[in-house]
């Protein structure tokens, strides 16, 4: 499965969520499918997207939060899985696109390429719903089931190590940050 096809399959579903992504290919691909003010692309601070999503989820239980993580980023903050599991926000779905590669910096293999199982690690950390999917159909189904379950879920989606040719978009980092914050704080949100 290609990550962009997986993103396309849930793009409509994301319209009413607070979406936090990691940097690089994921951020560029989601923007190419259609940026919205409810998308925040954490363009550095590798590992902290899940923590940032947890901060939103705990601060605003009325919002549905979707974190779009990657294998390289999650491996930098495995302890954060135990924090997610400790608080188990029912309004957070944690997607991990696992291409077994640090694609953005030349495709060096991550530890998932040698057998580390991120869904297994999440389950062992105490995340109540976890799973690994390998097709776009299974991914979209798992995402919708996770939202409907109202229970913290980590979905690991195995994807090809391919991405866009460029990662920089015309959306400024601070423009994105202020737009996102305004969106979350709007009276109707």
């Amino acid at each position: 499965m290609k990550r962009i096809d997986a993103l396309r399959a849930i793009h409509d579903d994301l319209a009413d969520c607070a979406v936090v992504t990691i940097m690089g290919a994921v951020a560029a691909e989601l923007q190419s499918l259609g940026h919205r003010p409810n998308h925040f692309y954490l363009q550095h601070a590798m590992g902290l997207a899940s923590s940032l999503g947890l901060g939103i989820a705990l601060s605003r239980p009325d919002l549905d939060v979707v974190v779009i993580d990657g294998d390289g980023s999650l491996l930098m903050n495995l302890g954060g899985l135990t924090t997610l599991a400790r608080y188990q926000p029912s309004n957070l779905v944690h997607i991990v696109f696992d291409n077994e590669s640090l694609l953005s910096v030349g495709g060096f293999p991550t530890a998932t390429s040698t057998g580390s199982d991120l869904a297994g690690i999440a389950a062992a950390a105490g995340v109540p719903r976890t799973g690994t999917v390998r097709s776009v159909e299974d991914f979209a189904g798992a995402f919708r089931a996770a939202r409907a379950a109202r229970m913290l879920s980590t979905i690991v989606a195995k994807v090809d190590a391919v991405g866009p040719s460029a990662f920089v978009t015309d959306l400024g980092l601070l423009e994105n940050r202020y737009q996102f914050a305004r969106h979350l704080r709007r009276p109707s949100a």
């Binding site: 936090v20 947890l54 939103i56 705990l58």
Partner: peptide
């Protein structure tokens, strides 16, 4: 680990 707290605080701030 403490660095997670930066993410927690950033999320809390963006959420108001």
């Amino acid at each position: 680990k403490e660095e997670e707290g930066v993410g927690i605080s950033a999320g809390a701030h963006l959420a108001g």
